[in-house]
Structures are given as C-alpha cells and as structure tokens.
C-alpha cells in the first residue's frame, strides 16, 4: 500500500464549454486532514463531485489506493471507501435521524437491501454503526425525530454523520460548518480532527480558523485550477494566495 490514499492526475470537468475544473493534480496522504480552500466558483465542490462520481471527469484520472476509479459509478465508489457530506444539507427529511444513519450504514452493502424479505433490523451491524455515530455526534436525545425537524446545527452534524456511517477510508466534507453557530463550530472542529485519526479527511471550508488549525495540508484553488499547495503556515503567507483572497480573508491563527 502506498502512502497516498487518493490521487488525481490532470483532472478536468467541463460543463458544456465551461471548464469548471482543469489540470488538477492532488495527492491526499493517508490519515491526513487535507483542506481545500478558494473563493466562490473556484471549483471546490465540482472537485468533490468528480471525486465521488456524481459528475464524470472529462479528462484526467482518479486513483483510490492506487486503483483507477475514474470510470467507477458513484455508488460503487462508496463500496470502495469514499463517502461525502454535502454543502447544502441533503438528508431524508421525513425519516427519523436514526433511520437516516441506518440507511447510510446499509449503503455499503446495498445488494443485501435488494432482498424484499429481509428485515431492516436484521442488519445488526448497520444499527450498531448508526448508534455509534449518534453517540459520537451527541445526537442521542433527538435520534427518533424526523431529520427535517432538527435544528440547523443538528442537521449539519447529521450531514457529516451520513458520511461517517459509511465507514469510509476517505471522507469528503463539503463546508461542514456552513451556517453553524460558534459553539457548534468548535465541536465540528474537534470532530474533523478526530476523524483524521481513522480516516483520510478531505474537506472544503471557508472558516480559516478551522482550516489553519487542523489541516495537515492545504490546497488553494482558483478558477478551477490549483493555485498553491502546502502546510497551513506556508499557504497563509503565500503572496498569491493573499491576492486571490484579496488579502483579507485569511486571518485565522495557528494554535
């Protein structure tokens, strides 16, 4: 096994004639926390879409643990060990929180779920994973509530939990703290740092406090291309990055 969990070479995505992503070379080290930053429209979410298979790469290749997954479908990639959360919360609003997580845990072995005679509760492992994630996210008091009835902060946590429940090797988090209150943000920061121990974490974030604090590596993107890459301190002081951000967004201190 190589030290690189996820890698792209010359990755590009075109929407019509528009190059949303071009020539992106990424190397995500195993069990590291790697963040992607960049101004709006930099192609960060598109990069995630391409990595998870939601959109097809129009050029380049994607490798997971050295295996080419460029043409692998999105649901197959989950089984290979990639899971993601969404920037815009995307849950099953009329299902209970616990059921959301049970489904996410079941998603790794979807063929089982094709059997119309098998009871959902028969998959004890999925239930155990759901409960474990509930515990870890401190959502136990609301585990039987419908996902759509949860507060925004709870929904954002559940959103991350959905990715965790798949027990992925690589976990992709798209702006996990968007719209969160200060207390929730701190908890999320701890969580992401924790996740880095047993997973490889790749996350998009605008909150520089989090990015600069917990990332092992930072990739800055602009206009669909990779601008700079390096450890947080180096990226923060890079003049090109300062210019891309108009100099005023990177203010987070390194703890």
């Amino acid at each position: 096994m190589t030290d690189i969990a996820l890698q792209t070479r010359g990755l590009g995505v075109k929407y019509g004639n528009f190059h949303a992503l071009a020539e992106v070379d990424l190397q995500i080290r195993r069990n590291s926390v790697h963040s992607i930053i960049g101004p709006n429209g930099a192609g960060k979410t598109t990069l995630f879409h391409a990595l998870t298979g939601r959109v097809r790469a129009s050029s380049g290749r994607i490798e997971l643990d050295g295996r080419d997954i460029t043409d692998t479908s999105d649901d197959d990639r989950v089984r290979l060990g990639i899971a993601r959360s969404f920037q815009v919360t995307s849950l099953f609003p009329n299902l209970a929180l616990r059921e959301n997580l049970r489904l996410a845990a079941q998603g790794r072995t979807p063929w089982q779920a094709l059997a119309p005679w098998r009871r959902a509760e028969a998959n004890a492992e999925a239930l155990a994973i759901a409960d474990e994630v509930i515990e870890r996210l401190a959502l136990a008091p609301v585990s039987n509530r419908l996902a759509g009835e949860l507060s925004h902060g709870q929904q954002r946590r559940l959103e991350v939990g959905m990715a965790m429940a798949a027990r992925p090797r690589v976990i992709l988090l798209d702006e996990p703290t968007s719209g969160m209150g200060i207390d929730d943000i701190e908890a999320m920061k701890q969580l992401i740092r924790d996740l880095g121990r047993d997973h490889t974490v790749l996350f998009i974030e605008h909150n520089m406090g989090i990015v600069m604090n917990i990332s092992d590596m930072v990739t800055v993107m602009r206009l669909g291309r990779k601008l700079v890459e390096g450890p947080p301190a180096q990226v923060r002081d890079d003049p090109e990055v300062q210019r891309a951000y108009l100099g005023n967004m990177i203010t987070g201190d390194i703890a």
């Binding site: 998870t52 939601r54 999105d74 099953f92 609003p93 489904l103 979807p110």
Partner: peptide, 10 residues
C-alpha cells in the same frame, strides 16, 4: 432524496 440515496451507495 434520490441523490442522497445514490451518494450513500444505493
């Protein structure tokens, strides 16, 4: 939510 169902592996 079909998109999410696909994203979690179904």
């Amino acid at each position: 939510n079909e998109g999410r169902a696909a994203a979690i592996g179904f």
